[in-house]
Simulated scan of single mutants.
Amino acid sequence: MAVLSFREALNQAMTEEMERDDRVFLMGEEVAEYDGAYKVSQGMLKRFGPRRVVDTPISEEGFAGIGIGAAMVGLRPIIEFMTFSFSIVAIDQIVNNAANMRYMSGGQFSVPIVFRGSSGMIGGLGATHSHRLEAWYAHIPGLLVVTPATPADAKGLLKTAIRSDDPVIFLEHEVLYPDKGEIPDGDHLVPFGKADVKRPGSDVTLITYSRSLKTTLAAAKELAERGVDAEVIDLRSIRPLDLDTLLRSVAKTHRAVIIEENWPYCGVGAGIADRIYRAAFDELDAPIQRVASGDAPIPYNKHQEASLLPSVPRILAAVEDVMYR
C-alpha cells in the first residue's frame, strides 16, 4: 500500500473521481492558481484545466449557490471553503437550499455536492477562524456530515462523498493535513455510517472522531498501563451515525466516555449520549461522561487555546470517574 499524507489522500480522491466522472469539478478560494490554501488541490489545475478547477472571489455565499445550482442540473461540484469558519457566510445556501431541495421538490431535484475544507482549532488563528461546526450541520436533516481522522479514511470517505446524491459536509481538521498513513490500493471507498474500532477493549468505550482520535488513542495507551482496557471507536461520520457499533461496545464494556473538540453545550456528544441512554440504559454501570472543548470563544494565544482542548489528563480523569476509581 502507498503511504500518503492526509492532504495527498484528499488530492488523490478528487483526482481519481474527476478522471472517472467528467461531471465532477472543484471550485473555491485559491484552489487553482495557488494550488489550494493548504495545497490539497496541488497540480489539479494543470491536470484538469480552469473549467474544472475554478478559482473564486472571496464570496462564499455566491460560489456555494453556484455549486448548488450546478448540482441541481446534473453536475457534481466539490466546493472548498478555505476554512469552514467561512461557511457561516454561506449557511443560507447550505441549510435552506442544499439540505432542503430534494424534499421541497418532491424528489424532482437532487443536490450531489460536497462542501469541504479545513476545520477546528489549529493554533493561534483566533475565534473567527477556529470554529468546529459539525454539531451545527449534523443538526440539519438533508445534510451528511463526515469527519475523517486518517489518510485512508480521508480518501475513502471523500470518494464516497463525491459519489453521493445528497449534500455532504466534509470536515478536514487542518492539523491532520501532514499526517501520513497507508492507503489501500484500488478503488478505495469507505461507507458512511460505519464507525471503526481502532482499539478493542473490555473495560470502557471511548467514542471520538477527527483530531481527537489521536488524543484518545494516547489516553488509551496510558490507561492500559494503569490496568484499564479501553475500546476506542472512531465515528468517521457523524450523520449518519453508526449507533449499532456503539451499542455493541457499550454492551461489552458497560461504560462510555465521548471525546470531541466541539463545544459541550448541544454538542455532538450530547446527541450521542442521548441515543445510547435511550437504547442501552440498562447496560450502563455509570453515567456517560463527555470530554469537550472549553465553553468559550477560542483565544488567539496558542497556550490558552491548547488549554481548552480535550487532553490526555482530562480523558483519564473522565475514565477514572466512570470506573469509580
Rank of each mutant, 00 (worst) to 15 (best):
G271H: 08
G269T: 07
L284Y: 07
A270I: 00
Q289G: 09
L284R: 09
Y300K: 07
D295P: 10
Q304E: 13
G271C: 09
I288W: 01
A280Q: 04
F281R: 03
A279P: 13
Y300C: 11
Y277M: 14
A296I: 12
G294F: 10
I288E: 01
R290G: 03
N262S: 11
R290P: 04
A270P: 00
A279C: 15
A286S: 14
I272M: 08
D295H: 15
Y277H: 15
K302R: 08
G269F: 04
D274C: 03
G269A: 08
A270G: 02
V268P: 02
H303F: 14
R275Q: 10
V268D: 04
V268H: 02
A280G: 07
P264W: 08
I272L: 07
D282T: 09
A296Y: 02
A279D: 14
R290H: 06
Q289T: 10
F281P: 02
D295W: 15
D274I: 02
P264R: 13
I298L: 08
C266F: 12
V268S: 06
Q289N: 01
I272A: 05
A273F: 00
V268K: 02
V268Y: 08
W263C: 04
R275N: 05
A280P: 03
G267W: 09
Y300L: 13
G271W: 05
D285N: 15
A280H: 02
A292W: 08
R275G: 04
K302D: 03
Y300H: 13
L284A: 05
E283S: 13
G294W: 06
A273D: 00
V268T: 11
S293N: 11
N262V: 13
Y300F: 14
S293E: 03
D274L: 02
Q304N: 11
Q289W: 02
E283N: 14
G269K: 01
E283M: 12
I272V: 15
Q289A: 11
H303Q: 11
I272Y: 06
G267M: 06
G269E: 05
W263R: 07
H303V: 15
E283A: 12
A292C: 14
Q304C: 06
L284M: 09
R275T: 01
Q304K: 05
A292D: 04
Y300W: 12
N262F: 09
D285R: 14
A279I: 15
A280V: 08
G294T: 12
Y277Q: 13
G294Y: 11
C266I: 11
A286D: 09
C266T: 13
N301A: 07
D274W: 01
A292Y: 06
I276Y: 06
P287V: 11
V291I: 01
